[in-house]
Design a protein around this nucleic acid. Sequence first.
DNA 1: TCTGGGGTCCTAGGACCC
DNA 2: TCTGGGGTCCTAGGACCC
Length: 433
Amino acid sequence: MSFTVCAINSPSLFALVDGNNFFVSCERVFNPSLNNKPVIVLSSNDGCAIARSNEAKALGIAMAAPLHTFAHLIKTHGIKTLSCNFELYGDMSNRMMHTLQRFAPDVDIYSIDEAFLDISRLNHNDYSLFAQSIYDTILKHIGLPITIGVARTKTLAKIANRTAKKQQKPYLIMTAPEDATHALQTTDLSSVWGIGRALAPKLKKLGIYTAYDLAIKDPMWARKVMGLSGERLVRELQGIACYENREETNKKSIQVTRSFGARLKEFNDIAEAISAHATRLGEQLRQKRLLAPALSVFCRTSLYSGSTPYNGIGIIAFDTPTNDTSTLIKGALHALRQAFQPGHIYQSAGIHALDLVSEGAFKQKNLFIPPKKESETSTHSKKLNQAIDSLNQHYGKNTLFWASSGINPRYQVRQNNRSPRYTTRWEELPMVR
DNA sequence: TCTGGGGTCCTAGGACCC
DNA sequence: TCTGGGGTCCTAGGACCC
């Protein structure tokens, strides 16, 4: 096969670092009795599997499999099931990403457990040594096992990483195009980064079954069949980088969505959930110094109940973009009144803020609010939010909360077996006896 | 009893303008 | 009686990711 390599004087090179079974590995750091056992971390409400140890994968438990579909295996194989503990995983992720920054100046954090290191200009002689040293450091300092894939493009680095995992190696170096051939031939099309549910069957009908089959296509053909992203994908598979590391940019949207711990019918119960979501949204907006110009709110019934699902949506636009919790709650409840219809059995509700603007960039004032009044109220609410945020940061989430979120709310998620938040709560610090 | 939650990017089509 | 064509912007929805 003939690959076109990109410009010879500055070939790109990426290392994809990916935590192995990340959530399970985070749990094992603090609970070694989980080692070598089938372990599953469940989604909120303990609904389905969102992380599986290798032992659990070997039992045939699929990603996102609902708990009840493998309940019979739990007893017979002694599977440990844990409720998710995102406070712990988020903190472990921060530590891992921070450590990775020692190895490359440009780290693109792609998800909670993955980062692309742009190592184009590092000129290492031996990338195996480099990868091994990353592996050793993360294992020693953070306690997490990782896998590293090194290749000319992000898409190939993904494939290198996946292939290394399959071979149970800590890393795979795929710097020369010919190194990639075998990995591409043994990677199923549907495992390629960017090929999902819709494209895989479409391409298979056209006789493309592996990553290799796609890599030898003409990029312009791919453009016609799959659009711009298809063209880029084929080029990436051919070793021509189309995706650089991303600049750190502001988030464009934030959503807070939860399934309820029980099915809910009453407006007031759902209003409490939405109020709690709006509070969380406010915290996140303020932390990132962002403002929401508008919100959409939804409440929906279960997709699996048998009856026709209902999904109500309501929208509220604010006079001026805001991150004030009290304003967000009022607006969200107003929007919920549009979304809610009596008579349904609701399963989840959420709130979604789009088109976020940064606090600094937003100077424009609303024409219809007298400047003095506006600034007084906004200074007052700013101080209140700051006070609540700092109390909650210091003493733990929900030390102070808004009464509209309910004292003993019925929406509360079920978490029957959540591990302690070892690294972020003083009172949950691991004890050495 | 029981089926997650949080993101980004691209595209097609409509509205609108000249 | 005749009723263009091209451009931009916005939005909803689809597809993808973890």
